[in-house]
Amino acid sequence: MPDEEFDLPGCLARVRKSDQAACRDLVNHLYPLVIKIVRSHLPRRSAEEDLAQDIFIKMFSRMHQYQGTVPFPHWVSRIAVTTCIDQLRSQKRRPEYRMADFTEDEAQMLENVSHPGEDTDPVDALSARELVDKMLATLNPKDRTILTLLDLEKHSLAEIASMTGWSITMIKVRAFRARKKLQKSFQELEQKESHE
């Protein structure tokens, strides 16, 4: 998380005067926020540094557009989220999984969530996280972003609206549809498993 004692307004004022040291401080300050967004959107981490770099360069090039109507980290989050969605769109292909595509732990986790009452140990949380990433990868980029922020990271609707610039109604509708799609995926996976 960004350092609480960091003088963000002061730093921004120096950035606007093209103070390179202040620019570097700003990048270092915001890096954890930006990389967290990048990582939560891209399961494959091959290009996370490149993407973070693109986000910061966009941030500097659009600095004159920042009006101060939303907190600066939220404004940067919007740039990060939009850049990640563009990146996901460019990948185009969304996977369709069969049970055979999951690891043993993920398959067991799928079994556990489909048939509640069976205990899971804390180690399974990592399998659950991997499985969540795979399920989210089947959704379109905006839906993936919304469910990541809403269900996984537990942000409020108002926070997501501020971070993305999307309306609360749109977020609710997309979240509802995306969950329905995931429910269908769970059912299809179970059906495929029973046929295999």
Binding site: M1, Y31, P32, I35, K36, R39, M109, L110, N112, V113, S114, H115, P116, T120, P122, D124, A125, L126, A128, R129, L131, V132, M135, D151, L152, K154, R179, L182, Q183, F186, Q187, E190
Partner: peptide, 22 residues
């Protein structure tokens, strides 16, 4: 139960240890 699968899965996924600040 099937409709709750996603909710249960993300609830478990949230228990995964948070990555340290990068």
């Amino acid at each position: 139960n099937k409709n709750r699968s996603w909710d249960r899965l993300v609830a478990w996924a949230r228990r995964a240890p948070a990555e340290p600040d990068a």
